[in-house]
Nucleic acid binder design. Structure first.
Lengths: 215, 215
DNA sequence: GCTTGTGAAATCTTTCACAGCA
DNA sequence: TGCTGTGAAAGATTTCACAAGC
C-alpha cells in the first residue's frame, strides 16, 4: 500500500532495524517467516510487525508469510545499506578503539574510513586498518568525500569541539557517546547515546516491575 | 500531584534520565531552572518537561522555576541513585574494557564491581581496579551479593551463554551490547544496545529529512 | 486453512491553554 | 507578573478483528 517515498511513523522507523537484525539472524535457516515469529524474536506484537512492514510495501504472501531474503533485500535497499555507509571516529581512546573494531558496525553495513585524535603520539598509528589523523586536519582529510556519520568518543571537555569539527567537515549525522550534551546546527541529525542513561532507564523499569525494597 | 509510588508513563521514564543529565550539567551554575530552559537543553517542549516532572511530584515553584539541587536530589532518590548501583561486565575485550573505564557509568552512579572473561590469559589481570574472574565462577564470585545490572560485551557466539550465566547468578537486569539477540526469562529486564542499529536509525531519519539522492 | 494487510477502536502521548500560586 | 501544574483537546501509536488472497 505504501509507495516507496511515503511517510513512515517515527516509532516504526525505530523498530525496522530490529526486524532487520532478526532477519539477518534467521537468514539461511528458513526461507519464510510469519509476522508472529518475527514479532516473538523482536519482542513486539504480531499486528505491530504487519503494520510496520506494510509501510514499506506489500512484501508478504497471505497464508505463507514473508520471504526472508526478499524482505532483507527490500529493507536494506530502503535503508541505503545496499552500498556500505562511511563512518569516521573522533577520539581514539578506549571507547573509540573498541567501536572501531566493534562487529556491530560492520555487520550493519558501516565502514570506518577515518579516525581522528588530538594526541600527537597516536597520529600516524593505526586503529584496525585506519590511520589516525590529527583532529586539526579533519576538514582536509575528509575533504570533498565527506562521511555519512561521525562518531564522537572523546572525553567530556572535548565533545563540543569534536562535534563542531565534524559539522565543518560536512558530516551527514553525528552519534555522540560522550556523557555530555553537544549542540550542532539543526540540519545535522544528532543522537546522544549515553550508556549510563541506558542503565538508568533499564533499572528504573526494573524498579517498577518489582516491589520496591529501598526506603 | 503524583505520590511516590504512582505509575509513570514509559515515554516519561525514557526522558527522565535526560533531564537528570542536563540538571547535572547546569548544577553549580544556576540555582533555579525554568521548564523552558530545561526543555531547550533536553530537546523537548516545555509543556512536556512540566508534565513529566509532575509525575514525580510538585517540585517546582510557580513564578520561579525548579530548584536545580533540590530536583536533582529528588530525581536521584527516585532513581535509586542515592546509593551507587553495582554493575558487572561479562567479556573483557575491547568494548568491555572501554566500558569499564567509561566515564558515563561512574557519572551516572554505577560502579563496576566484577568483570568476567573466558580467556585464561586474562584471568587474574585487572581492568581498572577490578580483577577479572573466569565466567565459570560467576555464581560463586557474585554469590549472595548479586549485582544490579550485568553488561554483556562478549563476541556474538558467546552472548547467549553469558546472559544465562548472569541470570543464574541472580542479576537484576541485563544490558546486551553484542550485535545479536539473547533470550532470558521474563523476570529479568533486558535491553539490547546494538550500536550499529543506532547508526541505522540516525541515518534513516536523515534520509527522510533530506531529499533522497541515491537511485 | 493459514497469514497478510488494514480500517476502526482503543490506548497512549503530546500539546494546548489557563487556573493557581509565589 | 511569571511560571508551574494540569484538565482537556489533539495527535500518534498500538491493538483488534476481519476481509482479502494465496
Amino acid at each position: 500500500m505504501a509507495p516507496d517515498g511515503a511517510h513512515i511513523p517515527e516509532a516504526t522507523v525505530n523498530r525496522l532495524p530490529v526486524y532487520l537484525r532478526v532477519l539477518n539472524e534467521i537468514s539461511g535457516g528458513t526461507a519464510t517467516v510469519s509476522s508472529e515469529e518475527l514479532a516473538r524474536r523482536a519482542g513486539v506484537q504480531a499486528a505491530q510487525v504487519r503494520k510496520d512492514l506494510s509501510y514499506l510495501g506489500s512484501y508478504g504472501t497471505r497464508g505463507v508469510g514473508y520471504d526472508v531474503e526478499f524482505l532483507l533485500r527490500q529493507m536494506n535497499r530502503r535503508f541505503g545499506l545496499d552500498c556500505p555507509r562511511r563512518a569516521a571516529i573522533v577520539g581514539v581512546g578506549n571507547l573509540g578503539r573498541a567501536l572501531a573494531s566493534y562487529g556491530g558496525f560492520a555487520a550493519r553495513g558501516f565502514e570506518i574510513v577515518a579516525a581522528f585524535d588530538i594526541d600527537p603520539a597516536k597520529i600516524g598509528t593505526t586503529v584496525g586498518r585506519t590511520v589516525i589523523s590529527p583532529v586539526s586536519e579533519m576538514e582536509e582529510v575528509l575533504g570533498a568525500a565527506s562521511v555519512d556519520v561521525g562518531v564522537v568518543t572523546v572525553p567530556v571537555p572535548a565533545a563540543q569541539a569534536a562535534a563542531e569539527a565534524l559539522v565543518r567537515s560536512g558530516v551527514g549525522a553525528i552519534l555522540n557517546f560522550a556523557p555530555v550534551s553537544v549542540v550542532v546546527p539543526p540540519h545535522v541529525p544528532l543522537r546522544h547515546v549515553d550508556l549510563g542513561i541506558e542503565l538508568q532507564i533499564l533499572l528504573f523499569h526494573e524498579q517498577h516491575l518489582r516491589p520496591a525494597m529501598g526506603a
